[in-house]
């Protein structure tokens, strides 16, 4: 591995293509500082006018859930079917509720 001082740090790039949508992860860039990370993201990703707003986040600052802990993280939501609208059968007359 290269010593960290030599290589520019990695930044994750999130782009919102237009107002009203979520910022979506679209890739990453290397840059020595935030300003340049933004510029690099601007120059690399929305080259076909698909950009409205950009976030950049130092990759090392993102904290990820442990994939091995997936069962305890996500399975408990599985049997809470009453959270879903389709759980409730209503008379046809009010079916658009």
């Amino acid at each position: 591995m290269t010593e960290p001082s030599r290589q520019w740090p990695l930044w994750e790039v999130f782009i919102r293509s237009r107002n009203g949508l979520d910022h979506k992860h679209c890739g990453s860039v290397h840059a020595p500082d935030a300003k340049m990370a933004l510029q690099n993201a601007r120059d690399a990703y929305p080259r076909r006018r698909d950009g409205g707003s950009i976030w950049v986040v130092r990759a090392e600052h993102s904290v990820a859930s442990d994939p091995d802990a997936k069962p305890e993280m996500f399975d408990p939501a599985e049997d809470k079917i009453y959270r879903h609208p389709t759980f409730y059968t209503l008379p046809d007359e009010v079916n658009h509720m």
């Binding site: 591995m1 290269t2 290589q7 890739g27 860039v29 690399a44």
Partner: peptide
């Protein structure tokens, strides 16, 4: 060039450094 960059980034998710 952009493609190269996206792909290096994909490789980096596997724990290697682009410079290497």
């Amino acid at each position: 060039g952009g493609h190269g960059m996206y792909l290096y980034a994909a490789a980096e998710t596997l724990g290697v450094a682009r410079d290497d």
